[in-house]
């Protein structure tokens, strides 16, 4: 398996994607409600939220396909509303479902988009060949596109979005409906693109994959940002206590005795070499202080591993909490 991508973050102050106070109203429904976030150049950002949270609307606004009711959306510092043509030159958009044409082969499809994007002659041929090679569609070049599998269709859609080598990619649910093998292949393609330094905003319901791929996650609910940070920070978001697995050399009962005498520490469960303890404050300073006290008190600690929630658990907990808050109001 490939190693996780190294983020190549451009230090220039203009973010690749900037959304500020974005609102989009459909009749009485406010799909996006004052959304604000920014993604630095070269970052891979995951865009998550429950169905109807406003992800697709926001992505469509960024892709110049929808107009906001108010607020600002910029790609590479250029306003998407005022200069859609300029933004489109820098942007690759992959929708959650793309229509297929009748009577058109894979290579003709890509050739059409290369022509439409202004490539001529040899350059056009090279771009099409390069994209087909990258997406490994070259073996299927003469296949009619309405006969492609879902996975191959998604590859073709990604290939189309890459024809003009855009700096920013917006991918809406690219893995939806794919089998595990196709998902892994798509993830690998996205990793390569990330290594090339492209800024990618990707929405998905498969959060574990997003956690692996993304430098940052933007979690939205009811059109507003709920959390923006790394996958780790999201896992810890809202956790008031920390649960730690501890292993010792010697008698494991020493850990229970030590916990009884220590403030902020509760012994939860014995294990073969130690036990699980709960620390009353989840902040890294307090957790590290507990470890230091253990060592100072003479416990021979061989393992001190903080238990993490996975992203799905964190997501469900956060959505549940927001729903409860909304219900309370």
């Amino acid at each position: 398996m490939n190693p996780p991508p190294l983020p190549t973050i451009d230090p220039s102050p203009v973010p690749a994607i900037r959304v500020d106070g974005l609102c989009r109203q459909f009749g009485q429904i406010r799909a996006v409600d004052g959304l604000s976030f920014s993604i630095a150049k070269g970052q891979v950002a995951g865009f998550i939220g429950a169905n109807g949270a406003g992800k697709t609307t926001t992505m469509r606004i960024l892709a110049t396909l929808e107009y906001p009711t108010s607020g600002v959306a910029e790609i590479m510092g250029i306003n998407v509303m005022d200069y859609p043509a300029k933004v489109r030159e820098m942007l690759g958009w992959m929708p959650d479902n793309f229509g297929t044409y009748d009577n058109m082969t894979v290579i003709e499809y890509l050739d059409f988009f290369a022509r439409a994007l202004g490539y001529r002659g040899k350059e056009r041929r090279e771009r099409v060949e390069e994209v087909m090679e990258f997406t490994e569609l070259d073996k299927l070049h003469d296949r009619l596109i309405n006969k492609l599998s879902k996975g191959m269709g998604q590859r073709l859609c990604l290939g189309r979005a890459l024809i003009h080598d855009p700096q920013v990619l917006i991918l809406d649910e690219p893995a939806a409906g794919l089998d595990p093998k196709a998902r892994v292949e798509l993830r690998q393609l996205i990793r390569i693109l990330a290594q090339e330094g492209k800024t990618i905003l990707i929405s998905s319901h498969i959060l574990s994959e997003l956690g692996e791929m993304c430098d940052t996650l933007v979690f939205i609910n009811a059109g507003r940002v709920v959390h923006h940070g790394t996958a780790e920070s999201m896992k810890r978001h809202g956790m008031e206590t920390a649960v730690v697995n501890v292993a010792l050399v010697g008698d494991p009962a020493k850990l229970e005795e030590w916990a009884l005498l220590s403030p902020q520490v509760t012994f939860l469960q014995s294990t073969k070499n130690g036990g699980r303890i709960e620390i009353g404050d989840s902040s890294p300073e307090v957790v590290s202080n507990v470890l230091r006290r253990m060592v100072l008190d003479g416990l021979a600690v061989t393992e001190f591993r903080r238990e993490e929630r996975n992203l799905e658990d964190a997501f469900i907990e956060m959505v549940g909490k927001l729903d409860r808050e909304a219900g309370g109001k």
């Binding site: 058109m104 003709e108 087909m132």
Partner: peptide
């Protein structure tokens, strides 16, 4: 992989992309 030449040369660059697509 060698891709067929005809796809890239069957219609001239001077013909609009939409015309090419629609004719195909």
């Amino acid at each position: 992989m060698k891709l067929p030449e005809s796809v890239f040369t069957d219609f001239s660059d001077s013909i609009g992309p939409m015309v090419v697509k629609e004719l195909r």
